[in-house]
Design a protein around this nucleic acid. Structure first.
Lengths: 254, 254
DNA sequence: ACAGGCGGTCGACATTGTCGACCGCAGTGG
DNA sequence: CCACTGCGGTCGACAATGTCGACCGCCTGT
């Protein structure tokens, strides 16, 4: 039976729809958005609600995502091998660099942040775990595109969305950049996604040299860069953290 | 059609199964555990995999939860109204009390932590957002049981699991405790779940006085208690934070 | 009082998911 | 070295199952 289960695909589409829209959605909105009969949409929503994946506001009758998703998402992190092995290295890296550290993996057409170490100072920061970042304009994303053919495939031929004046929007530019990244073994992104923010990333591989993710440090341009280039000492820190995690993954199984 | 959609319920059961077992599970394990035909289980798993809810280790063929769950779980938090309104108050409470702050809601037979503010000092701490805690032995749980009939219903008649010598394990004891909690308006839990840990919780209500969750502070017995009782000043801080959040929810809609 | 929208229900229909036998492969122990 | 046993995965027949669109009661704004 090589074909997806219809009701399941539809349920997934509904959850993604609910995740996308910032506000709660009514039954009819869901039905028309996905081109389903109201009865069908209702049946799926009722089941999802019963399972805790969706909740219904009792007075408006509108639907939103449910708590069970948070619980299962947490379980995903618990099992995640890359994350488990990277925890301590990421912490050390943040301490050494004095900047925010992200650990990201390829997911669909973006980078999914699976770990986030706050900058050591105590300014108020928002946890980014579970959020998505673009592939073509972040350091982690570009590392993945450079080394993982799947990531390159997901990216397509562009043109890519421009976030700042420095965002690379053409496939040609980006492929050239990726060649450079492969040559030197690390990627940077200076104000390509957010004004004033620079980051440096390096690849993490498993024991068979498959790319499985990337680490990066992330901070204000003034601290990460010097004379218009990222500081070599930070590059060294990131690369050695990535190597350490890769080594850990390589030895760790079995 | 008032009946759950079979394939969806089964898919949910599979995901919960994968979340429960610490390790990856094989197709046959899943099928026998849930009493499904292998073909059926495979069809569901294939669809879940395609949607990103489940991933398959390419060399062992075993299944684990997928990244999409993390992303959707994050979206759940983004929409969560209680959490959004509580963010700043929880932060202030943590600062004022100098202790860890949790924000929890009832989910199934437990407390789901939806927000966690680290203790202001910089010791290494693990983020508990998305994890579950018991209803009968934590301060948040007991507050919910005391005020929310649904929570009391979920708890059942016991006996409840014992974690330390001070855990209340009988329905009678617990109901008496709940009466006390309702009378004075707050709950505590001193070493009822973890040795050496004490916490104080208060209820959060929405604009129609329905219980929707609770805040608590959590810290070592030596700092939270004095002469064998929790410090009144901390109780006052927690209660005023809970009132502030409730007020925020009450005024906030529309 | 009405019209229009909502969430939710119902029952007939046939699409759809389910089942259990079967396949090829890998590891294993005789 | 070769049955043998377990695995993940496939196949096709069958009927149970999810789907559809009309319908219901309710609330809201007019």
């Amino acid at each position: 039976m090589p074909g997806p289960i219809q009701s399941l695909s539809r349920a997934a589409a509904i959850m993604r729809l609910l995740a996308g829209g910032e506000r709660r959605l009514g039954l009819s909105e869901v039905a028309t958005a996905l081109d389903l009969a109201k009865g069908t949409a209702h049946g799926i929503l009722r089941t999802l609600q019963q399972e805790g994946f969706v909740e219904q506001d009792p007075e408006s009758g509108k639907y939103q995502l449910g708590a069970e998703l948070l619980r299962l998402g947490q379980s995903y992190l618990d099992v995640h091998e890359l994350r488990a092995r990277a925890l301590v290295w990421a912490d050390d890296l943040a301490r050494a660099a004095g900047e925010t550290v992200y650990l990201g993996v390829l997911h669909q057409q973006g980078v999914l942040i699976v770990h986030h170490v706050f900058r050591p100072d105590d300014t108020r920061q928002v946890l980014e775990v579970g959020s998505m970042q673009p592939l073509h304009s972040t350091a982690i994303g570009k590392v993945l595109v450079a080394y993982d053919p799947v990531a390159r495939g997901e990216l397509g031929d562009g043109p890519y969305e421009s976030y700042t004046l420095r965002t690379l929007t053409g496939a040609g530019e980006l492929d050239a950049e990726c060649a450079l990244i492969r040559e030197r073994g690390w990627a940077d992104s200076v104000e390509e996604t957010w004004e004033g923010v620079a980051s440096i990333a390096a690849l993490i591989q498993d024991r068979r040299r498959n790319p499985v993710g990337a680490v990066c440090i992330n901070g204000p341009v003034e601290r990460v860069c010097e004379d218009g280039f990222v500081k070599p000492s930070l590059v060294a820190s990131v690369r050695s953290a990535a190597r350490a995690i890769s080594r850990d993954l390589g030895a760790g199984r079995f």
